[in-house]
């Protein structure tokens, strides 16, 4: 009798520990856990979003399949990081010369409220002609960012306006849509072009 009770308590104890472990897993690593940051983007083939390019064409992840892709996030009211990134990319494209013609280069706004199709068209017009500007409804932008594991956040400024914090890395995908690597914002310039070439070469490897 007494022994049974002990066994009973033991079983309950094991059960309780197992439950605690399960709850712990659920909250930390399981479906209930927070989205881990700094994750790799999924392949373009696994993404699903509908946007509009700066010429008014409907675009989505499938638009990018078949050619290597360089993509990044920003907004046209951004005074420092975005024009700098766009200028850097324009410089890399100049360095790549003809090779750049084989790439998709996409600037995706995180501020669709101010960045309309017309705004994007005017803005990208100041940079390398290969750069396309994509915008769309807020919920579609959220889906893009989710696929890229990118983040953005609207922050009010003292001037009564708002600015956007956002992922400033440049993402590189192979022609197959597979994520290759990214160029971080503060990475030395001389690392960027070889990384882009890697994404370009992956295409040829995949084809042979």
């Amino acid at each position: 009798m007494r022994r049974r009770a002990i066994l009973g308590y033991g079983a309950a104890g094991v059960g309780a520990v197992a439950l605690m472990l399960f709850v712990g897993w659920w909250q930390v690593d399981g479906p209930g856990g927070p989205e881990p940051v700094g994750q790799r983007p999924v392949a373009l083939t696994e993404m699903d979003f509908r946007l509009t390019d700066h010429e008014g064409n409907a675009v989505g992840p499938e638009t990018l399949i078949g050619r290597p892709t360089m993509a990044f996030f920003g907004f046209t009211y951004c005074p420092d990081v975005c024009p700098t990134t766009l200028s850097d990319i324009s410089g890399w494209l100049d360095d790549l010369g003809d090779e750049a013609d084989e790439m998709n280069v996409v600037f995706i706004t995180v501020d669709p409220e101010r960045d309309t199709v017309e705004t994007m068209a005017e803005y990208v017009g100041y940079f390398h002609p290969a750069i396309r500007g994509w915008t769309g409804p807020e919920e579609q932008i959220a889906r893009v960012a989710d696929g890229f594991r990118a983040t953005y956040e609207r922050v009010p400024t003292e001037s009564g306006d708002y600015t956007m914090n956002h992922s400033a890395s440049v993402f590189l995908f192979a022609a197959s849509g597979r994520f290759v690597t990214m160029i971080d914002y503060h990475e030395p310039r001389e690392f960027a072009v070889p990384k882009i070439r890697r994404a370009l070469e992956e295409e040829t490897e995949g084809a042979t």
Partner: peptide, 20 residues
């Protein structure tokens, strides 16, 4: 009307933000 020295910071996750 509002010129101010700001600083752009990029965190470990690659997210850039600006503040005075």
């Amino acid at each position: 009307m509002m010129p101010e020295i700001h600083e752009t910071k990029t965190n470990a996750e690659g997210v850039s933000s600006m503040s005075p």
